[in-house]
C-alpha cells in the first residue's frame, strides 16, 4: 500500500524529484522489447485531447479573459482589454475577501469533521457485526443522492419552526432553537452539517478499504504486549492510515471548496453573505452579474491560491515521508 502511494507521489512530484529513482527501481535493465514511446502517447491521446479541448483551452481562454471586460453579447469585437484592472479590483473587493474567509471556515471545519466521522464509522464498521455489507451501503447512500433532492429535503428538515430537527430539539425544552438556514450565524454550520452528512459515507468507504490492509500481525503483537485499544490505534492503525488520510484530505478539500449546488439551492449565498463561498461568488459574478472578465480574475486568483496550498501540503507530506 505504501509503495503504491510512494509511486503516486513520485509521479506527482516535479520532474526529477522522485520519478527517476522509481523508474530505476522498477526496471533494473531496459528490456529489449520495451514499447516504443509513441505507443504511450497513443494510449493517452483520446483522454489527453479531450482534456486539452475541454479543460486546457478553456483555462487558457479564462486567463486571457481575465485581462478584459466583456459580456458575450457584444461579440468578440466587443472585448475590451483592461490590463490588470480586474485583478486590482479583486484585491480591493471586500466581497472577495469575505468569501475567502467563509470558504476557509466552511472547508476548514467540514473537511476535518468529515474525515473524523468517516474514520469513526469505518473503525466501528470494521468489526464483525450483523449485515455489515448493508450497513456500509447505508452510510454511503447520501453520497450518491443528487444535490437537488438533498437540498430540498434538508431545507425542510431544518425549517426553523416546523422542521423535524427543531421539533426534535424542542423535546428537550431548549429556549433558543437554532434558526439554521434562516440565520446568518447558523447558515454556515447548517451547511457544514449537511455536507458532513453527505460526504462522510465517501470518507468511510475509503477508510474501510484502507483498514482491510491493516497489518494484522502487528495487532497480535500489540495485544500480546498488552497495549490498549487506543495505544494500538495510535501506534499501528493511524500511521497506516496516514496516506489515505492525505488522499481524502485533498479530494475532500477540492470537492468541498467547490460546493455550489447546495448553496445555490438552499441559501443563495445568504442570509446576508453568510454562505457566499468563493465558488458561489464566482458563479454569481459570471451568471448573475455577467461580469465575465472579472469572474475570470476571481476564479484565477482562487485557483492559484488552491494550487499553492496543495503544493505546500505536498511539500510537508514529502518532508515527512523522507523522515520515515
Amino acid at each position: 500500500m505504501t509503495t503504491a502511494e510512494a509511486r503516486a507521489d513520485g509521479a506527482a512530484a516535479p520532474p526529477g524529484a522522485r520519478e527517476p529513482t522509481a523508474r530505476r527501481r522498477r526496471t533494473p535493465g531496459r528490456a529489449p522489447s520495451d514499447p516504443k514511446p509513441i505507443v504511450g502517447w497513443l494510449f493517452i491521446a483520446p483522454n489527453l485531447l479531450g482534456v486539452l479541448a475541454f479543460t486546457f483551452i478553456p483555462l487558457v481562454s479564462v486567463i486571457l479573459l481575465s485581462f478584459t471586460e466583456w459580456n458575450l453579447v457584444s461579440g468578440f469585437g466587443g472585448i475590451e482589454f483592461v490590463a490588470l484592472d480586474n485583478f486590482i479590483a479583486v484585491f480591493q473587493d471586500p466581497t472577495f475577501w469575505r468569501s475567502l474567509v467563509i470558504t476557509i471556515l466552511y472547508a476548514g471545519v467540514a473537511v476535518p469533521l468529515t474525515l473524523v466521522v468517516g474514520l469513526a464509522l469505518a473503525l466501528a464498521l470494521n468489526r464483525d457485526i450483523p449485515a455489515r455489507g448493508l450497513l456500509r451501503a447505508a452510510f454511503f447512500v447520501p453520497y450518491i443522492v443528487n444535490i437537488v433532492a438533498i437540498g430540498m429535503t434538508w431545507q425542510m428538515l431544518l425549517d426553523p419552526s416546523a422542521g423535524l430537527m427543531n421539533q426534535f430539539l424542542g423535546i428537550f425544552g431548549l429556549e433558543h432553537l437554532p434558526q439554521w438556514f434562516a440565520s446568518s450565524h447558523w447558515a454556515l454550520p447548517a451547511l457544514i452539517l449537511v455536507t458532513i452528512w453527505a460526504q462522510a459515507g465517501y470518507a468511510n468507504l475509503i477508510y474501510l478499504s484502507a483498514l482491510q490492509d491493516a497489518p494484522t500481525q502487528l495487532y497480535e503483537a500489540a495485544r500480546i504486549d498488552g497495549a490498549g485499544r487506543w495505544a494500538s490505534f495510535r501506534a499501528i492503525t493511524w500511521p497506516s492510515l496516514l496516506p489515505t488520510t492525505v488522499f481524502l484530505l485533498v479530494t475532500l478539500f477540492v470537492g468541498i471548496s467547490q460546493t455550489f449546488g447546495m448553496i445555490a439551492l438552499i441559501t443563495n449565498g445568504g442570509p446576508g453573505d453568510s454562505t457566499t463561498t468563493l465558488s458561489f461568488y464566482m458563479y454569481q459574478t459570471s451568471f448573475q452579474f455577467y461580469r465575465f472578465g472579472y469572474a475570470s480574475a476571481v476564479g484565477l486568483v482562487t485557483f492559484i491560491g488552491i494550487f499553492a496550498l496543495m503544493l505546500l501540503m505536498w511539500r510537508a507530506q514529502r518532508g515527512k515521508a523522507l523522515h520515515d
Binding site: 434558526q179 446568518s184 445568504g270 442570509p271 446576508g272 453573505d273 453568510s274
Partner: peptide, 20 residues
Amino acid sequence: YTEITQKYEQQRDVCWLLER
C-alpha cells in the same frame, strides 16, 4: 442596479433577522 439590489437585500435580511 443588480448588484446594489443584492447588497440591499442581504443587509435587509440580516437586519430583519434581528442579527444586525
